[in-house]
């Protein structure tokens, strides 16, 4: 839930092949779950048009 840990990563050295594979896999898992849910979603955000 804490955004900071995602964005304050300073990339001093390139990601290793394992890190890259891990992140890519996690992105794909999330995208699959999002795709399976998207047709059931209202699509609107609660503060849209605020």
């Amino acid at each position: 839930m804490n955004e900071e840990r995602f964005f304050y990563i300073k990339l001093k050295t390139p990601l290793s092949i394992w890190q890259t594979t891990g992140i890519l896999s996690w992105i794909l898992i999330k995208l699959t779950l999002i795709a399976s849910m998207i047709h059931q979603s209202a699509g609107e955000f609660i503060y849209a048009g605020f």
Partner: peptide, 11 residues
Amino acid sequence: DRVLLILNAIT
């Protein structure tokens, strides 16, 4: 790598 981490955050 930067783009990959940002894509991770967006997803």
